[in-house]
Amino acid sequence: MNEELREYLLQIRPLEAVSMEMARKRWSQVAKPLNSLGVLENDIVKMAGIMETSRVELDKRALVILCSDNGIVEEGVTQTGREVTALVAENMTKGESCVCIMADRAGVEVFPVDIGVARDLVSGVRHPLITRKTAYGTKNFHREPAMKREEAVQSIETGIRLVKELAEAGYHLIATGEMGIGNTTTSSAVASLLLKKAPEVLTGRGAGLNDEGLRRKLGVIKKAVDTYGPACRDTIDVLACVGGFDLAGLTGVFLGGAIYRIPVLVDGFISAAAALAADRIYPGCRNYMLASHVSAEPAGRLLLDQLELAPLIQAGMCLGEGTGAVSAIPLLDMAVSVYTKMSSFEEIKIEAYKPMGGGS
């Protein structure tokens, strides 16, 4: 780890306990059955600890989409070619992609970031492109490491700096997204090395692979795990050997949430693989994350369980781009409204609910 990244991580402080206790007390006073909003209540308490205030606000929220190409596509592990990454990323800048339509509905500002697309992009005006290119796509990790260690660190620091900029602009919540053909392959390889689980347990069909394509994808990941596993000294090595610039950048976004005290929403499988990488780089980083949904990809639940994060939604989603993260934001909006606006038991002059033990 270089000195700049180490200096960033030294800024992380624990969740603020007093604000969390005040948030729990407020929930206990709201005139409804105790704990009846489940994960939503817990997430508001966590946000109070992150923000260091019990006055939780979500008025200004951003979706950061890291876009990058992956050299592993050369091995036929995807249904489409890598040229699709650039086309979809450009579509995002015009506000015409799936997640942009959803974000408009949810009141979320979209920030597409070119961190490693294989060609230069033409930006639309709806969501202007942020260009932070580490390189023009990663190498093919079937033949050589995906990137240099220095490039992995650079990408992580890019993610951290993006969060810094959003924090300075007053954003209260960051949703994570990505776009990169081949990145379910990179994410499966990263997850396999970090979790020390067989690729078969973690690897799905991505964007619609047939049986032959899935066998090819599994073979590539298995070989990578065998080749690079013994040589990886730490999580940054894992990202460098088999990851992508988007994954490394998202890792930085999660670290940035902890550094600059902004809650960060985990999206699906790819985002969760980056979240786990961030937590391995700085144990406890998970405390600054919220889980939006359970991805339909095989590793979706496993990664959230490893991070000890409870998802808000289970809808069989696996689109990526941040669609799951954006979908969860209206639920958090509703929870904040109840938390801040609902009458207390005392105000409506009825006896408060009391905690009851389980069993008979």
Rank of each mutant, 00 (worst) to 15 (best):
A299Q: 12
N2K: 00
T323N: 11
A335M: 03
A167G: 09
I50R: 07
A17Y: 11
C232I: 08
A146D: 12
V294E: 14
V108I: 07
L250G: 11
E74I: 02
L214F: 13
I236G: 02
T80Y: 15
H142R: 09
I221H: 02
D305E: 14
K354H: 12
V153P: 12
V190L: 04
C67D: 10
A89R: 01
E165Y: 11
M179T: 04
S295K: 10
D120A: 09
R216W: 09
V73I: 07
Q154D: 15
H293D: 07
R6H: 10
N287L: 06
L290E: 01
A146N: 05
L290T: 00
S97H: 12
R261Y: 08
I50P: 04
P145H: 02
E109I: 14
A152C: 02
N287C: 07
A198T: 06
A17I: 07
G124C: 11
E96R: 11
R205G: 08
A118S: 15
Q314C: 06
S295V: 05
A106I: 06
Y136N: 14
L319M: 10
G268N: 09
C285Y: 05
T203M: 13
G177N: 10
E52N: 11
H293R: 05
L129Y: 15
I156C: 00
E144W: 08
V163D: 10
D234Q: 00
F254C: 12
D114P: 10
D333I: 04
G268H: 11
S188L: 04
E308W: 10
V264F: 15
R26D: 03
Y339R: 10
C285E: 04
K25R: 10
M47G: 01
G358V: 06
A135T: 14
G213Y: 15
L331D: 02
L15Q: 05
I236H: 00
L331F: 07
S292E: 05
T53D: 13
